[in-house]
Write a protein that binds this DNA or RNA. Structure first.
Lengths: 217, 217
DNA sequence: ATTAATTTTTAGTCTTGTCTAAAAATTAAT
DNA sequence: ATTAATTTTTAGACAAGACTAAAAATTAAT
Protein backbone atom coordinates (compact mmCIF):
# COMPACT_ATOMS: atom_id res chain seq x y z
CA UNK A 1 0.00 0.00 0.00
CA UNK A 2 1.70 3.17 -1.19
CA UNK A 3 1.14 6.64 0.20
CA UNK A 4 -0.75 7.61 -2.93
CA UNK A 5 -3.02 4.60 -2.83
CA UNK A 6 -3.84 5.30 0.79
CA UNK A 7 -4.76 8.86 -0.02
CA UNK A 8 -7.09 7.76 -2.78
CA UNK A 9 -8.89 5.31 -0.51
CA UNK A 10 -9.22 7.94 2.17
CA UNK A 11 -10.57 10.51 -0.28
CA UNK A 12 -13.15 8.09 -1.63
CA UNK A 13 -14.24 7.20 1.86
CA UNK A 14 -14.68 10.84 2.79
CA UNK A 15 -16.73 11.46 -0.32
CA UNK A 16 -19.03 8.51 0.43
CA UNK A 17 -18.82 7.54 4.09
CA UNK A 18 -22.06 5.58 3.83
CA UNK A 19 -20.54 2.80 1.75
CA UNK A 20 -23.21 2.48 -0.91
CA UNK A 21 -22.74 5.49 -3.21
CA UNK A 22 -20.50 5.59 -6.27
CA UNK A 23 -17.95 8.38 -6.21
CA UNK A 24 -17.34 10.27 -9.43
CA UNK A 25 -13.87 10.49 -10.93
CA UNK A 26 -14.04 14.25 -10.91
CA UNK A 27 -15.01 14.40 -7.26
CA UNK A 28 -11.92 12.42 -6.35
CA UNK A 29 -9.75 14.54 -8.61
CA UNK A 30 -11.06 17.71 -7.05
CA UNK A 31 -10.54 16.47 -3.51
CA UNK A 32 -6.98 15.32 -4.16
CA UNK A 33 -6.16 18.35 -6.29
CA UNK A 34 -5.16 16.14 -9.15
CA UNK A 35 -6.43 15.51 -12.68
CA UNK A 36 -9.29 13.24 -13.67
CA UNK A 37 -7.00 11.22 -15.90
CA UNK A 38 -4.73 10.44 -12.98
CA UNK A 39 -7.73 9.32 -10.99
CA UNK A 40 -8.87 6.96 -13.74
CA UNK A 41 -5.46 5.32 -13.75
CA UNK A 42 -5.27 4.89 -10.00
CA UNK A 43 -8.82 3.75 -9.63
CA UNK A 44 -8.18 0.97 -12.14
CA UNK A 45 -5.15 -0.07 -10.18
CA UNK A 46 -7.06 -0.16 -6.91
CA UNK A 47 -9.82 -2.09 -8.62
CA UNK A 48 -7.28 -4.70 -9.74
CA UNK A 49 -6.20 -4.97 -6.13
CA UNK A 50 -9.75 -5.57 -5.02
CA UNK A 51 -9.94 -2.44 -2.91
CA UNK A 52 -12.83 -0.92 -4.82
CA UNK A 53 -15.18 -1.60 -7.70
CA UNK A 54 -14.84 0.64 -10.69
CA UNK A 55 -17.37 1.12 -13.46
CA UNK A 56 -16.15 3.28 -16.34
CA UNK A 57 -18.03 6.58 -16.60
CA UNK A 58 -19.80 5.81 -13.33
CA UNK A 59 -17.15 6.03 -10.66
CA UNK A 60 -15.74 3.99 -7.81
CA UNK A 61 -17.11 2.37 -4.68
CA UNK A 62 -14.89 1.03 -1.91
CA UNK A 63 -14.92 -2.71 -1.29
CA UNK A 64 -15.06 -4.02 2.27
CA UNK A 65 -11.29 -4.36 2.23
CA UNK A 66 -10.74 -0.89 0.80
CA UNK A 67 -13.11 0.62 3.29
CA UNK A 68 -11.32 -1.12 6.14
CA UNK A 69 -8.02 0.36 5.05
CA UNK A 70 -9.50 3.83 4.68
CA UNK A 71 -11.09 3.73 8.12
CA UNK A 72 -7.83 2.57 9.64
CA UNK A 73 -6.01 5.53 8.14
CA UNK A 74 -8.66 7.86 9.51
CA UNK A 75 -8.30 6.18 12.89
CA UNK A 76 -4.58 6.90 12.82
CA UNK A 77 -5.10 10.46 11.62
CA UNK A 78 -7.46 11.27 14.46
CA UNK A 79 -5.39 9.56 17.13
CA UNK A 80 -2.33 11.52 16.04
CA UNK A 81 -4.30 14.77 16.01
CA UNK A 82 -5.37 14.15 19.57
CA UNK A 83 -1.82 13.27 20.56
CA UNK A 84 -0.55 16.52 19.11
CA UNK A 85 -3.14 18.57 20.99
CA UNK A 86 -3.11 16.69 24.27
CA UNK A 87 0.54 15.91 24.64
CA UNK A 88 2.47 18.31 22.45
CA UNK A 89 0.51 21.52 22.94
CA UNK A 90 -0.60 21.95 19.37
CA UNK A 91 -3.79 23.90 18.84
CA UNK A 92 -6.62 22.38 16.83
CA UNK A 93 -5.86 24.50 13.79
CA UNK A 94 -2.27 23.24 13.59
CA UNK A 95 -2.71 19.50 13.65
CA UNK A 96 -4.12 18.57 10.28
CA UNK A 97 -1.00 18.90 8.13
CA UNK A 98 1.18 16.91 10.49
CA UNK A 99 -1.45 14.23 10.99
CA UNK A 100 -1.67 13.87 7.20
CA UNK A 101 1.90 12.65 7.38
CA UNK A 102 1.68 10.62 10.56
CA UNK A 103 -1.39 8.70 9.40
CA UNK A 104 0.77 6.81 6.89
CA UNK A 105 3.19 5.35 9.42
CA UNK A 106 2.94 1.58 9.28
CA UNK A 107 3.03 -0.14 12.64
CA UNK A 108 -0.01 -1.82 14.15
CA UNK A 109 1.66 -1.84 17.54
CA UNK A 110 2.27 1.88 17.37
CA UNK A 111 -1.39 2.60 16.75
CA UNK A 112 -2.66 0.41 19.56
CA UNK A 113 -0.12 1.72 22.04
CA UNK A 114 -0.91 5.28 21.06
CA UNK A 115 -4.60 4.56 21.53
CA UNK A 116 -3.91 3.26 25.04
CA UNK A 117 -1.55 6.10 25.83
CA UNK A 118 -4.33 8.56 25.00
CA UNK A 119 -6.85 6.62 27.08
CA UNK A 120 -8.80 5.06 24.18
CA UNK A 121 -10.45 8.32 23.19
CA UNK A 122 -13.70 8.47 21.26
CA UNK A 123 -13.28 11.83 19.51
CA UNK A 124 -10.46 13.88 18.05
CA UNK A 125 -9.75 17.59 18.71
CA UNK A 126 -12.37 18.63 16.17
CA UNK A 127 -15.05 16.44 17.69
CA UNK A 128 -14.79 13.85 14.94
CA UNK A 129 -15.26 10.25 16.05
CA UNK A 130 -12.21 7.97 16.25
CA UNK A 131 -12.85 4.55 14.68
CA UNK A 132 -11.92 1.63 16.92
CA UNK A 133 -9.47 -1.13 16.08
CA UNK A 134 -12.20 -3.13 14.32
CA UNK A 135 -13.15 -0.16 12.18
CA UNK A 136 -16.38 0.72 13.96
CA UNK A 137 -17.08 4.41 14.00
CA UNK A 138 -18.94 5.67 17.06
CA UNK A 139 -22.19 7.31 16.00
CA UNK A 140 -22.64 10.72 17.46
CA UNK A 141 -25.80 12.56 18.25
CA UNK A 142 -25.20 16.11 17.23
CA UNK A 143 -26.91 18.80 15.20
CA UNK A 144 -25.77 21.98 13.59
CA UNK A 145 -25.76 25.21 15.53
CA UNK A 146 -27.87 26.66 12.72
CA UNK A 147 -30.90 24.57 13.68
CA UNK A 148 -31.27 26.28 17.06
CA UNK A 149 -33.76 29.04 17.74
CA UNK A 150 -33.53 32.12 19.88
CA UNK A 151 -33.42 31.13 23.51
CA UNK A 152 -31.90 27.70 22.92
CA UNK A 153 -28.80 26.59 24.78
CA UNK A 154 -26.30 23.99 23.69
CA UNK A 155 -22.74 22.79 23.95
CA UNK A 156 -20.23 22.86 21.13
CA UNK A 157 -19.19 19.29 20.36
CA UNK A 158 -17.48 19.57 17.01
CA UNK A 159 -16.89 21.33 13.74
CA UNK A 160 -17.95 20.22 10.29
CA UNK A 161 -15.15 21.96 8.46
CA UNK A 162 -11.68 21.75 9.98
CA UNK A 163 -10.17 24.46 7.83
CA UNK A 164 -7.43 26.24 9.76
CA UNK A 165 -8.83 29.69 9.08
CA UNK A 166 -12.23 28.69 10.35
CA UNK A 167 -10.70 27.20 13.48
CA UNK A 168 -8.67 30.33 14.09
CA UNK A 169 -11.86 32.35 13.83
CA UNK A 170 -13.38 30.12 16.50
CA UNK A 171 -10.30 30.51 18.69
CA UNK A 172 -10.58 34.27 18.43
CA UNK A 173 -14.13 34.19 19.71
CA UNK A 174 -13.61 31.65 22.42
CA UNK A 175 -15.58 28.90 20.72
CA UNK A 176 -14.11 25.52 21.57
CA UNK A 177 -15.24 21.97 22.23
CA UNK A 178 -17.27 21.79 25.42
CA UNK A 179 -18.08 25.49 25.37
CA UNK A 180 -21.64 26.55 26.24
CA UNK A 181 -23.50 28.46 23.54
CA UNK A 182 -26.72 30.38 24.03
CA UNK A 183 -28.72 31.71 21.11
CA UNK A 184 -29.88 35.19 21.92
CA UNK A 185 -31.38 36.15 18.62
CA UNK A 186 -31.70 34.89 15.08
CA UNK A 187 -32.14 37.13 12.07
CA UNK A 188 -34.80 35.68 9.74
CA UNK A 189 -33.43 37.51 6.71
CA UNK A 190 -29.92 36.01 6.50
CA UNK A 191 -30.19 33.37 9.22
CA UNK A 192 -27.32 34.95 11.13
CA UNK A 193 -27.36 34.46 14.87
CA UNK A 194 -26.45 36.45 17.89
CA UNK A 195 -24.95 34.00 20.36
CA UNK A 196 -23.38 34.18 23.79
CA UNK A 197 -20.15 32.33 24.45
CA UNK A 198 -18.13 32.80 27.62
CA UNK A 199 -20.33 35.72 28.61
CA UNK A 200 -19.55 37.52 25.39
CA UNK A 201 -22.01 38.13 22.61
CA UNK A 202 -21.01 37.59 19.01
CA UNK A 203 -22.91 37.54 15.77
CA UNK A 204 -22.22 34.58 13.53
CA UNK A 205 -23.25 34.19 9.90
CA UNK A 206 -25.24 31.23 8.68
CA UNK A 207 -22.07 29.94 7.07
CA UNK A 208 -20.42 29.79 10.45
CA UNK A 209 -23.48 28.32 12.15
CA UNK A 210 -23.72 25.47 9.66
CA UNK A 211 -20.18 24.44 10.44
CA UNK A 212 -20.50 24.05 14.18
CA UNK A 213 -21.90 20.90 15.75
CA UNK A 214 -23.77 21.19 19.04
CA UNK A 215 -25.51 18.94 21.47
CA UNK A 216 -28.42 19.91 23.66
CA UNK A 217 -29.00 17.70 26.64
CA UNK B 1 13.77 16.88 0.16
CA UNK B 2 12.42 13.47 -0.76
CA UNK B 3 12.48 10.40 1.44
CA UNK B 4 15.14 8.86 -0.74
CA UNK B 5 17.36 11.91 -0.62
CA UNK B 6 17.09 12.00 3.14
CA UNK B 7 18.10 8.36 3.39
CA UNK B 8 21.17 8.95 1.25
CA UNK B 9 22.31 11.87 3.36
CA UNK B 10 21.77 9.88 6.52
CA UNK B 11 23.70 6.91 5.14
CA UNK B 12 26.63 9.06 4.09
CA UNK B 13 26.70 10.70 7.49
CA UNK B 14 26.76 7.36 9.25
CA UNK B 15 29.61 6.19 7.04
CA UNK B 16 31.67 9.30 7.79
CA UNK B 17 30.46 11.01 10.95
CA UNK B 18 33.67 12.98 11.20
CA UNK B 19 32.89 15.21 8.25
CA UNK B 20 36.21 15.03 6.46
CA UNK B 21 36.32 11.61 4.80
CA UNK B 22 35.05 10.82 1.33
CA UNK B 23 32.52 8.01 1.24
CA UNK B 24 32.81 5.47 -1.57
CA UNK B 25 29.92 4.81 -3.90
CA UNK B 26 29.96 1.14 -3.04
CA UNK B 27 29.85 1.81 0.68
CA UNK B 28 26.68 3.82 0.25
CA UNK B 29 25.18 1.20 -2.03
CA UNK B 30 25.90 -1.51 0.46
CA UNK B 31 24.43 0.40 3.37
CA UNK B 32 21.24 1.27 1.51
CA UNK B 33 20.97 -2.16 -0.07
CA UNK B 34 20.90 -0.65 -3.51
CA UNK B 35 23.14 -0.75 -6.58
CA UNK B 36 26.22 1.36 -7.16
CA UNK B 37 24.72 2.80 -10.34
CA UNK B 38 21.72 4.09 -8.40
CA UNK B 39 24.07 5.71 -5.94
CA UNK B 40 26.00 7.49 -8.67
CA UNK B 41 22.77 8.97 -9.99
CA UNK B 42 21.54 10.16 -6.63
CA UNK B 43 24.88 11.48 -5.52
CA UNK B 44 25.03 13.66 -8.63
CA UNK B 45 21.61 14.97 -7.86
CA UNK B 46 22.52 15.81 -4.29
CA UNK B 47 25.69 17.44 -5.52
CA UNK B 48 23.64 19.68 -7.83
CA UNK B 49 21.58 20.66 -4.82
CA UNK B 50 24.69 21.61 -2.89
CA UNK B 51 24.21 18.99 -0.21
CA UNK B 52 27.46 17.21 -0.89
CA UNK B 53 30.55 17.34 -3.04
CA UNK B 54 31.02 14.52 -5.46
CA UNK B 55 34.21 13.56 -7.23
CA UNK B 56 33.82 10.81 -9.82
CA UNK B 57 35.60 7.61 -8.85
CA UNK B 58 36.37 9.11 -5.46
CA UNK B 59 33.09 9.36 -3.66
CA UNK B 60 30.98 11.88 -1.79
CA UNK B 61 31.44 14.17 1.17
CA UNK B 62 28.56 15.98 2.85
CA UNK B 63 28.50 19.76 2.66
CA UNK B 64 27.66 21.78 5.75
CA UNK B 65 24.06 21.99 4.60
CA UNK B 66 23.87 18.27 3.81
CA UNK B 67 25.39 17.40 7.13
CA UNK B 68 22.91 19.62 8.93
CA UNK B 69 20.01 17.84 7.28
CA UNK B 70 21.45 14.42 8.07
CA UNK B 71 21.98 15.29 11.71
CA UNK B 72 18.47 16.63 11.99
CA UNK B 73 17.06 13.37 10.69
CA UNK B 74 19.15 11.46 13.20
CA UNK B 75 17.88 13.80 15.91
CA UNK B 76 14.33 12.97 14.94
CA UNK B 77 15.07 9.27 14.70
CA UNK B 78 16.49 9.13 18.20
CA UNK B 79 13.80 11.29 19.76
CA UNK B 80 11.12 9.07 18.27
CA UNK B 81 12.91 5.95 19.49
CA UNK B 82 12.94 7.32 22.98
CA UNK B 83 9.29 8.28 22.71
CA UNK B 84 8.38 4.76 21.68
CA UNK B 85 10.26 3.23 24.60
CA UNK B 86 9.36 5.76 27.28
CA UNK B 87 5.78 6.49 26.41
CA UNK B 88 4.48 3.62 24.32
CA UNK B 89 6.13 0.63 26.01
CA UNK B 90 8.19 -0.50 23.07
CA UNK B 91 11.33 -2.42 23.90
CA UNK B 92 14.66 -1.27 22.52
CA UNK B 93 14.74 -4.01 19.91
CA UNK B 94 11.40 -2.93 18.41
CA UNK B 95 11.90 0.76 17.82
CA UNK B 96 14.25 1.00 14.88
CA UNK B 97 11.87 0.15 12.05
CA UNK B 98 9.16 2.51 13.21
CA UNK B 99 11.63 5.32 13.87
CA UNK B 100 12.93 4.88 10.32
CA UNK B 101 9.49 6.01 9.20
CA UNK B 102 8.85 8.66 11.82
CA UNK B 103 12.18 10.38 11.21
CA UNK B 104 10.90 11.65 7.86
CA UNK B 105 7.89 13.53 9.24
CA UNK B 106 8.27 17.19 8.37
CA UNK B 107 7.30 19.58 11.13
CA UNK B 108 9.83 21.63 13.06
CA UNK B 109 7.26 22.32 15.75
CA UNK B 110 6.61 18.62 16.20
CA UNK B 111 10.28 17.90 16.82
CA UNK B 112 10.75 20.68 19.34
CA UNK B 113 7.58 19.83 21.22
CA UNK B 114 8.52 16.18 21.26
CA UNK B 115 11.94 17.09 22.60
CA UNK B 116 10.33 19.08 25.42
CA UNK B 117 7.75 16.37 26.07
CA UNK B 118 10.57 13.90 26.60
CA UNK B 119 12.46 16.31 28.85
CA UNK B 120 15.20 17.27 26.39
CA UNK B 121 16.95 13.94 26.61
CA UNK B 122 20.62 13.47 25.76
CA UNK B 123 20.61 9.82 24.70
CA UNK B 124 18.27 7.41 22.98
CA UNK B 125 17.27 3.91 24.15
CA UNK B 126 20.49 2.44 22.74
CA UNK B 127 22.68 4.98 24.46
CA UNK B 128 23.29 6.94 21.27
CA UNK B 129 23.54 10.71 21.70
CA UNK B 130 20.63 12.86 20.53
CA UNK B 131 21.79 15.90 18.54
CA UNK B 132 20.33 19.19 19.76
CA UNK B 133 18.32 21.65 17.70
CA UNK B 134 21.49 23.30 16.41
CA UNK B 135 22.92 20.00 15.30
CA UNK B 136 25.48 19.62 18.07
CA UNK B 137 26.05 16.03 19.06
CA UNK B 138 26.92 15.49 22.72
CA UNK B 139 30.28 13.78 23.01
CA UNK B 140 30.19 10.75 25.23
CA UNK B 141 32.91 9.22 27.24
CA UNK B 142 32.54 5.52 26.85
CA UNK B 143 34.65 2.52 26.01
CA UNK B 144 33.95 -0.98 24.85
CA UNK B 145 33.29 -3.72 27.33
CA UNK B 146 36.05 -5.66 25.59
CA UNK B 147 38.77 -3.32 26.92
CA UNK B 148 38.08 -4.29 30.54
CA UNK B 149 40.20 -6.76 32.47
CA UNK B 150 39.28 -9.35 35.04
CA UNK B 151 38.16 -7.63 38.20
CA UNK B 152 36.99 -4.42 36.51
CA UNK B 153 33.51 -3.03 37.15
CA UNK B 154 31.52 -0.80 34.88
CA UNK B 155 28.06 0.31 33.84
CA UNK B 156 26.47 -0.43 30.51
CA UNK B 157 25.79 2.87 28.74
CA UNK B 158 25.09 1.85 25.17
CA UNK B 159 25.42 -0.57 22.31
CA UNK B 160 27.44 -0.19 19.16
CA UNK B 161 25.22 -2.36 17.01
CA UNK B 162 21.47 -1.93 17.40
CA UNK B 163 20.56 -5.08 15.54
CA UNK B 164 17.33 -6.50 16.93
CA UNK B 165 18.76 -9.98 17.44
CA UNK B 166 21.70 -8.61 19.37
CA UNK B 167 19.37 -6.55 21.54
CA UNK B 168 17.15 -9.55 22.20
CA UNK B 169 20.24 -11.46 23.28
CA UNK B 170 21.01 -8.70 25.75
CA UNK B 171 17.41 -8.72 27.00
CA UNK B 172 17.64 -12.43 27.62
CA UNK B 173 20.69 -11.99 29.82
CA UNK B 174 19.49 -8.93 31.67
CA UNK B 175 21.95 -6.55 30.07
CA UNK B 176 20.38 -3.11 29.73
CA UNK B 177 21.41 0.53 29.93
CA UNK B 178 22.45 1.42 33.46
CA UNK B 179 23.12 -2.18 34.41
CA UNK B 180 26.24 -2.94 36.44
CA UNK B 181 28.74 -5.30 34.87
CA UNK B 182 31.62 -6.98 36.63
CA UNK B 183 34.32 -8.81 34.74
CA UNK B 184 35.09 -12.03 36.55
CA UNK B 185 37.45 -13.60 34.09
CA UNK B 186 38.80 -13.09 30.60
CA UNK B 187 40.02 -15.90 28.38
CA UNK B 188 43.27 -14.90 26.66
CA UNK B 189 42.77 -17.35 23.83
CA UNK B 190 39.51 -16.05 22.31
CA UNK B 191 39.08 -12.90 24.37
CA UNK B 192 35.75 -14.13 25.68
CA UNK B 193 34.73 -12.86 29.11
CA UNK B 194 32.93 -14.22 32.10
CA UNK B 195 30.87 -11.35 33.47
CA UNK B 196 28.39 -10.87 36.27
CA UNK B 197 25.16 -9.00 35.57
CA UNK B 198 22.28 -8.87 38.06
CA UNK B 199 24.04 -11.42 40.19
CA UNK B 200 24.16 -13.91 37.35
CA UNK B 201 27.29 -15.01 35.58
CA UNK B 202 27.38 -15.26 31.82
CA UNK B 203 30.09 -15.83 29.31
CA UNK B 204 30.18 -13.43 26.41
CA UNK B 205 32.22 -13.77 23.22
CA UNK B 206 34.56 -11.07 22.00
CA UNK B 207 32.01 -10.22 19.34
CA UNK B 208 29.48 -9.41 22.01
CA UNK B 209 31.98 -7.55 24.17
CA UNK B 210 33.00 -5.27 21.31
CA UNK B 211 29.42 -4.20 20.82
CA UNK B 212 28.67 -3.04 24.34
CA UNK B 213 29.67 0.42 25.54
CA UNK B 214 30.51 0.87 29.18
CA UNK B 215 31.55 3.64 31.52
CA UNK B 216 33.69 3.24 34.59
CA UNK B 217 33.38 6.00 37.12
C1' DA C 1 54.91 -2.30 -16.09
C1' DT C 2 51.52 -4.93 -17.86
C1' DT C 3 47.78 -7.74 -16.81
C1' DA C 4 43.97 -8.92 -13.77
C1' DA C 5 40.47 -7.75 -10.53
C1' DT C 6 37.61 -4.43 -8.66
C1' DT C 7 35.06 -0.28 -8.51
C1' DT C 8 32.54 3.20 -10.67
C1' DT C 9 30.16 5.26 -14.32
C1' DT C 10 27.33 5.40 -18.45
C1' DA C 11 23.59 4.06 -21.31
C1' DG C 12 19.33 2.29 -21.70
C1' DT C 13 15.09 0.24 -19.51
C1' DC C 14 11.33 -0.15 -16.07
C1' DT C 15 7.70 1.24 -12.66
C1' DT C 16 4.97 4.61 -10.21
C1' DG C 17 2.34 8.42 -10.35
C1' DT C 18 1.57 12.34 -12.59
C1' DC C 19 0.39 15.41 -16.65
C1' DT C 20 -1.65 17.28 -21.38
C1' DA C 21 -4.27 16.79 -25.40
C1' DA C 22 -7.49 14.40 -27.96
C1' DA C 23 -11.23 11.06 -28.31
C1' DA C 24 -15.33 8.98 -26.50
C1' DA C 25 -19.25 8.74 -23.57
C1' DT C 26 -22.68 10.90 -20.83
C1' DT C 27 -25.73 14.56 -19.48
C1' DA C 28 -28.07 18.92 -20.30
C1' DA C 29 -30.48 22.14 -23.24
C1' DT C 30 -32.99 23.80 -26.74
C1' DA D 1 -34.13 14.38 -30.80
C1' DT D 2 -30.27 16.68 -32.10
C1' DT D 3 -26.85 19.72 -30.67
C1' DA D 4 -24.04 21.59 -26.98
C1' DA D 5 -21.66 21.17 -22.71
C1' DT D 6 -19.57 18.37 -19.49
C1' DT D 7 -17.30 14.40 -17.75
C1' DT D 8 -14.42 10.60 -18.36
C1' DT D 9 -11.19 7.87 -20.68
C1' DT D 10 -7.31 6.90 -23.74
C1' DA D 11 -2.86 7.75 -25.60
C1' DG D 12 1.46 9.46 -25.16
C1' DA D 13 4.94 11.98 -22.42
C1' DC D 14 7.61 13.02 -18.30
C1' DA D 15 10.22 12.94 -13.70
C1' DA D 16 11.97 10.23 -9.88
C1' DG D 17 14.33 6.45 -8.51
C1' DA D 18 15.62 2.15 -9.22
C1' DC D 19 17.74 -1.74 -12.19
C1' DT D 20 20.96 -4.44 -15.74
C1' DA D 21 24.65 -4.74 -18.79
C1' DA D 22 28.53 -2.82 -20.78
C1' DA D 23 32.29 0.55 -20.78
C1' DA D 24 35.76 3.13 -18.37
C1' DA D 25 38.65 4.14 -14.59
C1' DT D 26 41.14 2.76 -10.62
C1' DT D 27 43.62 -0.44 -7.71
C1' DA D 28 46.02 -4.76 -6.94
C1' DA D 29 49.11 -8.40 -8.39
C1' DT D 30 52.46 -10.62 -10.65
Amino acid sequence: MTLSEENYLKAIFHLAPEADAMVATNAIAHRLETKASSVTDMVKKLSDKGLLTYVPYQGARLSKKGRQIAVNIIRKHRLWELFLVEKLNFSWDEVHEVAEQLEHIKSPKLVEQLDDFLGNPKVDPHGDPIPDKEGNIPVRDHRLLSVLKAGDRAICVGVKDSDANFLKYLNKHGIALGEKIEVIDKEPFDESMLIRVRKKEIRVSQQIATNIYIETR
